[in-house]
Nucleic acid binder design. Structure first.
Lengths: 286, 286
DNA sequence: GGGGGCGATACCGTACGGGTATCGTCCCCC
DNA sequence: GGGGGACGATACCCGTACGGTATCGCCCCC
């Protein structure tokens, strides 16, 4: 007799209809039927009379409906009290700014889900520029980062969410722009944009086509586009996004795809971090 | 926040020691640690201070301990009330008498487990003789049968619990008794004991070596032994049991092994049946 | 400095809870 | 009276999550 099962039971008892109850619970009807059957064998009593005419509560079911509502109510209040006793809780989330992640659920939606689950907690979302892919995880500026690899993962726990193929960002009038795909060697003589000194080396190397090269320095996606547009520089970006006026993206082969990840400091004490991670993983899966 | 998790939490909060709490819960320590971590991220608060010195409750943990005890208490009472509202519940269990099942948990142990889970219910155990392997399932004399195949399964649901190899039951001074194994054909000219008229044909055929033969009529295991001992009759029995004074069991090849099963009428309304089946299956697995 | 206690982590197997597809049954209506 | 629709049950599949064992990391203490 778990609380989730009791929630199922209350839904069926209120709807008196398995199909509608399942819809209300955002699940399909067969698992709901099974869960109720199991609940019945668990408490050792029939809870519903299933007659062709419809579903009706048995006396035992009526008693359980009462008790279940009470239990669920108290469980909710218990949660609230615990949260209150825990005092002010804060979670600082870092996301890779500007472009962020086009195909994902979006930071706003994630923060919303999180706030619904933890109404007492304060969520701060902090945008990072392309200088630090960890958004300040190492430095302690954020508790959890929703970002993109690769970066130095020592001391961090990482869960992959998705992988995206990458492409070269070129001016539309570049001779290479008409190729169907390119390899890094094809761009060996070009200048690539790079990031300010102190940027994570793995990150720097990956997004500069495999090695550091001379080129304009950028901090944000917008600056990358400008750098490509204004001079012969090339850059890397994700496939599938609209590259912008006067620009073209050509798929790059021979490079590992870029991973969207959620990362946090290993052994982090703040329990909200794990909760956020679970929400993010679930959102990217669904 | 499920009730099971809260039981875990209370155990840890009372022991203030993960290892001991795990022992009390009859589980190992790692899953317990994980469950508590998950609970913490679920409620969004740290519940324990894990210091090298030991484990201590946080303020939030203290609040939850209070609430959890209350919830678990009320859940127990809810169960009791539902059971009371359901009125007198009865489960009649049929077991194949006399020998029953040597290697299994035993009907007494199973009934004990069941009574602990359903204190309000009345359990009646009914021994059957070898005449009816279903112990009166078809006739409605019992709700669930813990028995041995094969038998007519129409209208019944069956779950297999174990299979046992079978052997021929012979007098120790029988010339065939010294063989390492026998096939039914080796016993073609012998008389086999048989069961009273009206016995399930599948059952009758299986335990008479593949066909019906003339021979003494028996109703119980004891009678089988006597029949073999007193005249040249042969019979079938299970390997691994002590056959008794003056008797020998020789393995029989070429026959499907005998299945120990739990069976009930398909679509049975009594929810105690499913509960009993679950208990039996768990007991045979563990 | 080494050993022991204890919680955390890693990894694996199983079972349960979710899904889709289909059935059986009853009702209703043409 | 037969066909179709509504609805709960069943069959089957799959992923997750919860159990387990083995091992690590850390601190304490002798």
């Amino acid at each position: 007799m778990e609380l989730r099962t009791l929630r199922y039971f209350v839904a069926v008892a209120e709807e008196l209809h398995f199909g509608r109850a399942a819809a209300r619970l955002h699940m399909s009807q067969p698992p709901l039927s099974r869960a109720i059957r199991r609940l019945e064998s668990d408490v050792g009593a029939s809870l519903f009379d299933r007659s062709p005419a419809g579903v009706a509560l048995t006396p035992a079911g009526a008693v359980l409906l009462d008790e279940a509502r009470d239990l669920l109510d108290r469980a909710d209040r218990a949660r609230a009290r615990v949260a209150a006793a825990a005092g002010a809780a804060t979670l600082t989330v870092g996301i890779l700014g500007d472009e962020g992640d086009g195909g994902g659920p979006g930071a706003a939606a994630l923060a919303g889900t999180f706030r619904r689950r933890h109404p007492h907690a304060e969520v701060r979302v902090r945008d990072a520029d392309l200088t630090d892919p960890t958004c300040g995880l190492h430095a302690g500026a954020v508790d959890v980062a929703l970002t993109r690899g690769p970066f130095d993962e020592t001391g961090l726990s990482v869960r992959a969410l998705r992988t995206d193929p990458v492409g070269a960002l070129l001016r539309a009038d570049d001779p290479l722009a008409r190729h169907g795909s390119l390899r890094p060697a094809d761009l060996a003589d070009r200048r690539w944009f790079r990031f300010p000194v102190g940027t994570d080396p793995l990150w720097q190397a990956y997004w500069s086509g495999g090695e550091l090269r001379e080129g304009p320095m950028v901090r944000a996606v917008r600056e990358c586009r400008q750098a490509v547009l204004w001079n012969g520089t090339v850059g890397m970006t994700l496939l599938g996004h609209e590259p912008g006026e006067g620009l073209v993206v050509v798929p790059l082969t021979g490079l590992p795809p870029s991973r969207v990840v959620v990362a946090w400091r290993t052994g982090e004490a703040n329990p909200l971090v794990r909760s956020f991670v679970r929400i993010v993983v679930a959102a990217y899966r669904g």
